[in-house]
Write a protein that binds this DNA or RNA. Sequence first.
RNA 1: GGCCCCAUCGUCUAACGGUUAGGACAUCAGAUUUUCAAUCUGGUAAUCAGGGUUCGAUUCCCUGUGGGGUCACCA
Length: 502
Amino acid sequence: MIAKREEKKIRTRFAPSPTGHLHIGTVRTALFPYLFAKKNKGAFILRIEDTDLERSKKEWEDELLKGLRWLNISWDEGPGPEGPYAPYRQSERASVYRKHLEKMLEEGKAYYCFCPKEEIEAEKQYLMSIGESPVYQGKCRDLPKETVKKYLEEGRPSVIRFRTPDNQKIAFNDLIRGKIEVDTSTLGDFVIAKDLDSGLFNLTCAVDDVEMGITHVIRGEDHIPNTPKQMLLIQAMGFEAPEYAHLPLILGTDKKKLSKRTGKTSLIDYIEDGYLPEAMVNFVAFLGWNPGTEKEIYSMEELINDFSIEKIQKSAAVFNIDKLDWMNGYYIRKTPLYELTQMCVPYLVKAGFIKEISLEKYSVVETGEGIHIEDIEKMVALYQERLKKLSEITELLDLFFKKELDYPKELLKWKEMGDEDIVISLKKSSEIISSIEKFNKENLEKELLEEAEKSGNRGNLLWPLRVAVSGKKSSAGPMEIAAVLGKEKTLKRIEEAINKLK
RNA sequence: GGCCCCAUCGUCUAACGGUUAGGACAUCAGAUUUUCAAUCUGGUAAUCAGGGUUCGAUUCCCUGUGGGGUCACCA
């Protein structure tokens, strides 16, 4: 274990408990200490706080690690002999906590408590009712040693409490909020372990932060009340407390702590929706931090470069999905087409539009025809700048995979056109398209635009054509779609549109 | 209820005590366009309230109000 350090190299940690989905707020409590460590050429430690055996599950830990990898946040060391590092797990460190517990018990800094739960609960209710801090009143504080021994031998249910010093002010300088001070009388003798081998959060966290040589504890605001407790423990164990920085919370649009009711809370949902890791990192970083300039698009590397704890916001921030969408769209537009296509394909497969045949070959489910990745690339190209998240690709591209389009004939109508006008317009398009020898976007544009100009209103020709080939109120341009569709299919769709009007 | 934290446009935020209170997203116009996007131009929009301190408060102090966190044999 790293007990003493020769040089004060910066060491931060991310200490999640694997008791649920990787929450978006948790993502930020991982990101900030990571950025801070990397900025200062320090180490970033991952420590799984799984002392609650009931609630901790391997699957949650797996999701956690997967999420971190997706975000491109890597940690620097682990308990194993070599990388890739397994994270530290508190469930594997019981002996470390036991060592400290025994010592504190011996020195009288901690003591056994045999009070029944119900009694404690009643006491708490009473204290709250008379407007006082609901803290343990210290009934077992000074039990004679023999009594404790006897009770223990009898096997009476017990816990281990910390002997909090009376009426002492404990203060620390929060790197984000400045001085925070509390009176120990509002803390009470809190429970630090169920038994010698089952340390509880405040104890295990305090022990590990010093044992692992953490210099800067950067965590959520919800831990502010725990900080004095942990500092007291660290003091009692004879160590020096690290620096603390408490991040503001992330709120939902209802200004309450981000919860499932107000939006998606787990990273996994955002991954599935098709948000890119770059957008997610950029967005989350700017929730409560800014570089002090007007630059807003930041890569991880740039974030590391410009990160500073002083620029972290004090107040909670509302998770604004609109801005995330905008940012994600920006990153999608910047993604090379080939890569973007690779990212979109799984969504098309999942939607049941296409099936993978071999590495770059697919088959269209409805028609059975073969399709190459390059064909898909052409489709994706038409919609790259409209995409806000990858999952939207399915409703945008479905027109290319359907045998027949399903739309109301009214959609074919542009402005004041009557059914007959539309038929005439479509027949004209059909005629022109049939006559094109070399069927490509350029030639389509050349011929069709020329014709469209004639009427003085391009919509007369182009709108019905666009709806005929896309079946949609809004889509990419008719010539672009036709070029991808091919001559035969384009003509067939125009024919079908005309039939609708008959 | 006790303790602790916070407070600038709808949202994210900028402003060593002196700015026409700036930017971004969203929104609304306009340009472009067959549509929807994208892009460009422009507009609307904020210092929670009341007291101090000061020549001068968004900024410092106090009080109030509002919001949040936390008070587990969870983390």
